[in-house]
Amino acid sequence: MPREAEPSINERAFVLQALRENIRIDGRAFDAFRDLELSFGDEFGIADVKLGRTRVIARISAEVSEPFPDRKFDGIFTITTELSPMASPAFEVGRQTDQETILSRLLEKAIRRSNALDTESLCIIAGKKCWNVRADVHVLDYDGGLVDASCIAVIAALRHFRRPDVSIEGEGVTVYTLVERVPVALAMLHHPLCVTFSFFEGGEVVVLDATLQEQQMSEGEMIITANRHGEICQIAKLGGVPTDALALLRCVDVAVAKVRDMSKAITGVLEMDAKEQDLGGMTAELSAENDR
């Protein structure tokens, strides 16, 4: 089993001493994210996220399939994550590590369970046909902050994605190509984003968006998912160093503020992209609804 190289004792002492003196190795404030870079692919539903050196690509695809028999009125939405050895030598193909399980579980809770994507709107004919929306998360480079980056990628990609329009006649379903009919955006109920906090010094020092190195030395972490309406979608402090309850509540407030900022940033990039897609204002030309 390949493993991440452990930081040496000297490195460890250096980083921790610096943290004690309120300094992070990369010079960031304790509650600062690394630079976020978001771009979209040429097709709908591809988002490329760079958070510092961590890079994640999410791709959304949709096809018509049969719903689960116990959920006749819902479409299917799955998120799959893939940690390839390309990103880090510690990742292995074919074997699920704990980290991968936790990542996919957290994305599941943050996005799927919190109902970010309205699966009821994916139903075409109850019990017979529905949309199967798949989000594939590929980690291309790994330097900590995996959950945060993946979540941004999936949410941005979902917001960018357009599924083909369908019409129903009796039992028959017609799926129109993107040229035949203007494709439809997915119905999103809210846009959850994750913020990871790492604890050091018995929970005395709390650091946001830890790099891989910081993550290896931390005594515990907590991932908070929130949306810009001030709702907490998920909290996961899965063990680790016991930390004061009040400190945790402070983290929640920080997370809510950070999520608001990030949400705004993502919306900005989406708008820019929409403008680029709209070749010289042709969208206005194609609108069928016009003022009298």
Binding site: L178, V179, R181, V182, E285, L286, S287, A288
Partner: peptide, 8 residues
Amino acid sequence: RPFPKAVL
């Protein structure tokens, strides 16, 4: 709904 791109 808007006219599809093919109309362009």
